[in-house]
């Protein structure tokens, strides 16, 4: 009896969340040969799937719970979810990188956040940064991410690769590096 009564709301929430997600985003499709936005374009890895949402583009080969590449171009003034700090056009790459790690550190769902590396990097031909970090998600799964970011005149562009630390991260890392190399900006 208890199990049934507990499971009912769980199933209901799951259905509602699924409906909401499908309402906000289109279905997963085979990634096109070249994916582009108003100011950028990349070459997705061959055979990967693509999901477009209002705020980002996601690519995955085996499913987003195992690995994904996320691309986001957001207005500089847009607030972050956890830290109240804001980006601005005059920031140096490492100042922007620090803001991103501060946002991660203040995320209550992220456990055991560890910054493995923070380095300057050319992102689409612009001075940016590259972070490598690990953390545990609420289920205790160890996740590893490479986060490339760059401040453009009016936007903050970021491209990240996230995968489970075991098995998947190393496996698809070359695919991500190729995506980063394929990145081009078209700025006025």
């Amino acid at each position: 009896m208890s199990e049934l009564t507990i499971q009912r709301p769980v199933i209901f929430v799951w259905v509602v969340v699924t409906l909401m997600l499908t309402a906000c985003a289109g279905p997963w499709n085979t990634a096109p040969d070249r994916l582009s936005g108003p100011q950028w374009s990349i070459t997705p890895p061959e055979g990967w799937m693509h999901l477009s949402t209002q705020e980002s583009e996601m690519l995955s080969k085996d499913g987003p719970y195992l690995e994904y590449i996320l691309l986001q171009s957001r207005p500089l003034a847009q607030r972050f979810r956890h830290t109240k700090q804001k980006l601005n056009a005059g920031m140096l790459p490492h100042e922007a990188a620090r803001l991103i790690t501060d946002n991660m550190r203040t995320d209550p769902l992220i456990r055991q956040f560890r910054l493995l590396a923070s380095e300057p990097a050319m992102v689409g031909g612009h001075d940016g940064f590259r972070l490598t970090y690990t953390y545990k998600d609420p289920s205790g799964v160890e996740i590893k991410t490479i986060y490339c970011g760059v401040i453009l005149p009016d936007r903050f562009f970021n491209l990240r690769y996230t995968a489970t630390q075991r098995h998947y991260f190393e496996k698809e890392l070359p695919a991500f590096n190729q995506v980063v190399e394929s990145l081009r900006f078209v700025l006025n």
Binding site: L92, P93, A97, S118, E119, P120
Partner: peptide, 10 residues
Amino acid sequence: DDAREYIKGY
């Protein structure tokens, strides 16, 4: 320091 590579670049 974590920021050393950036500072070397600057």
